Simulated assay, not measured.
Amino acid sequence: MSLHAEDLNDFQQQVEEAAHMARSLHTGSTAQDAAAVCRALASASKLSLRLALPAGSAAMPTTTGCADHPTGAVDPVAPPGWGTCLLCNARRRRHDAQQRTPGQRQPAQ
């Protein structure tokens, strides 16, 4: 299945806009400036899901099913066998990356 040119163009424009906004941030930027970047990224993310899901397929879940973060963000790229909680999956990815980093000291237990 190929992507529709109009949707793809919209997605690329949203990503470029978000990237431009992010590059414009500096130490004097406000929380509102950072929030604007977050909104732009969220909009691009929603559009990317629409591009990634085949027409007529079930949409991404809107709840995580996670005991710790039931109404948290849903991970749109959760690996097979993982839950859909973005917060838990991000923590798991960080942990996995630390385990793979050679020469890094492991914390004392």
Results as ranks from 00 to 15, higher is better:
3 L>S: 13
4 H>I: 11
5 A>N: 13
6 E>K: 00
6 E>Y: 10
8 L>I: 06
8 L>Y: 12
9 N>T: 15
9 N>K: 09
10 D>G: 02
10 D>A: 03
10 D>L: 09
10 D>H: 05
14 Q>V: 02
14 Q>L: 01
14 Q>T: 01
17 E>W: 08
17 E>K: 05
17 E>L: 10
18 A>L: 04
21 M>A: 15
23 R>P: 07
23 R>T: 12
23 R>Y: 09
24 S>G: 11
24 S>V: 02
24 S>M: 06
25 L>I: 00
27 T>C: 01
27 T>S: 02
29 S>P: 01
29 S>H: 00
31 A>P: 07
31 A>L: 12
32 Q>F: 07
32 Q>Y: 10
33 D>V: 00
35 A>F: 14
36 A>V: 01
38 C>W: 06
39 R>C: 11
40 A>L: 07
41 L>D: 07
41 L>N: 02
41 L>G: 02
42 A>N: 10
44 A>K: 03
44 A>R: 06
44 A>S: 15
45 S>F: 11
45 S>P: 07
45 S>K: 11
45 S>Q: 15
46 K>P: 07
47 L>G: 04
47 L>M: 04
48 S>Y: 01
49 L>V: 08
51 L>N: 06
51 L>W: 13
51 L>M: 11
51 L>S: 04
52 A>E: 12
54 P>M: 04
55 A>I: 14
58 A>T: 12
58 A>Q: 15
59 A>E: 14
59 A>Q: 14
60 M>S: 14
61 P>K: 11
61 P>G: 10
61 P>Q: 07
62 T>V: 09
62 T>M: 03
62 T>S: 12
64 T>Y: 06
65 G>E: 10
65 G>D: 12
66 C>A: 00
66 C>M: 01
67 A>D: 14
71 T>N: 13
75 D>I: 09
75 D>T: 09
77 V>L: 14
79 P>K: 02
80 P>G: 02
81 G>Y: 05
82 W>S: 07
82 W>D: 13
83 G>Q: 06
84 T>A: 03
84 T>I: 08
84 T>W: 15
84 T>Q: 12
85 C>R: 04
86 L>C: 11
86 L>F: 13
87 L>G: 03
89 N>A: 01
89 N>W: 08
90 A>N: 13
90 A>L: 14
91 R>Q: 15
91 R>W: 13
91 R>M: 13
92 R>I: 01
93 R>T: 11
93 R>W: 15
94 R>G: 05
95 H>G: 08
96 D>C: 09
96 D>P: 15
97 A>P: 08
97 A>T: 08
103 G>F: 10
105 R>C: 06
105 R>S: 09
105 R>G: 05
105 R>T: 09
105 R>F: 13
105 R>A: 12
106 Q>K: 07
106 Q>M: 04
107 P>K: 00
107 P>T: 05
107 P>E: 05
108 A>H: 11
109 Q>S: 05
109 Q>L: 05
109 Q>P: 05
